[in-house]
């Protein structure tokens, strides 16, 4: 069990061994994002751009246009705001092979407060044509999805935590874009979660089982493209859905799930666990998750509510 950012840093170093097109850029946060591990191993392929995120992403766009595979790194909140002008206007419009490492996602940079929390990044990146959005949930998936990102042609956003997540998958588990995974089976309700909320959902499922509620938990590692087939199956089999994410309830995983189900013609009662359209604040991570209702308790409350609306 390692911090997700460590796993990512190691994965970059590993990738570079057999792919000399990989370049890594950072904006004066390489010690935090762990891209600095790559910088140590491959100094000639590492570019610290200073505190200049727009410059960093646009530079990566140029590198990609010449056939390289640049990974840009900084806190998710700065990458998807200051880096957005190039992400949209150059990288996605040009379908360029730039990989975005969004570090310290959600509230994982807890004490720094709202200015450093990324609670809109999924929404922002998901709306860009050509962009894929992947969210690992443990060590094995972080490592694997970093490789998937490198191997996919075109832009990819990887949503990465500062935190340590418990292990869910074995080293040889296979991850594909467009695929979620059922990590706990159940029959009454499906919680579709990503990142840290997968673990919170499993915790909630354990507690709810004691109340006789059978909860299925889906880890939606690929938010774009989303696993529509799996979502439809879960809606049909369990009859209601709860989305759970460390992100605004607007525009993120929950919205993507609702869009997919509505479009497929299988709308079911749904509840949304996430940040309720407010700015967050400073504090210890666990206390923040609890205060904003995105912990196991928050998932449990949403599950009971979803069940109550199920016919």
């Amino acid at each position: 069990m390692k911090a997700i950012r460590e796993v990512y840093g190691e994965a970059l170093v590993e990738l570079a061994k057999d792919n000399d097109k990989i370049l890594v850029l950072d904006a004066d946060l390489s010690g935090s994002t762990k891209s600095g591990m790559f910088g140590k191993a491959y100094p000639e392929r590492f570019f610290n751009m200073g505190i200049a995120e727009s410059n960093m992403v646009a530079t990566a766009a140029g590198m990609a246009s010449c056939g390289m595979i640049p990974f840009v790194n900084t806190f998710a909140v700065f990458l998807t705001t200051l880096g957005l002008i190039s992400a949209r206007g150059q990288v996605c419009y040009g379908n360029l092979n730039v990989k975005f490492g969004g570090a310290y996602c959600g509230m994982s940079d807890a004490f720094d407060g709202s200015t450093h929390h990324a609670c809109e990044d999924i929404a922002v990146m998901r709306t860009l044509p050509n962009m894929r959005v992947l969210v690992p949930s443990d060590t094995a998936s972080s490592k694997a999805l970093t490789r998937v990102a490198a191997e996919l042609e075109g832009p990819v956003y990887l949503r990465l935590s500062r935190d340590v997540y418990p292990d869910l998958y074995s080293e040889d588990e296979v991850f594909e874009p467009g695929k979620g995974k059922i990590v706990r089976d159940g029959t009454d309700v499906t919680v579709v979660a990503c990142g840290i909320l997968v673990h919170k959902a499993l915790e909630a499922a354990e507690k709810l089982a004691e109340e006789g509620i059978s909860v299925r938990v889906v880890d939606m590692l690929s938010i774009k493209p989303i696993d529509r087939e799996l979502l439809v199956r879960c809606a049909e089999e369990t009859g209601c859905i709860v989305s759970a994410e460390e992100h605004s309830i607007y525009g993120g995983l929950g919205s993507a799930v609702a869009e997919a189900l509505a479009d497929a013609g299988v709308p079911v009662p749904m509840q949304f666990v996430g940040i309720q359209d407010v700015f967050t604040e400073s504090g210890p991570y666990a206390q923040l998750l609890a205060k904003y209702g995105i912990d196991a308790e928050g998932v449990a409350v949403a599950v009971r509510k979803a069940l109550s609306k199920k016919k």
């Binding site: 004490f111 407060g113 709202s114 200015t115 604040e281 400073s282 504090g283």
Partner: peptide
């Protein structure tokens, strides 16, 4: 700390802070 007047980065909830900062 949680529920504090003193955020990690300046917030206008704090009297005397003129404008948010952090980015």
């Amino acid at each position: 700390r949680i529920d504090s007047l003193l955020q990690g980065h300046p917030s206008v909830h704090t009297p005397g802070v003129e404008i948010p900062a952090g980015p």
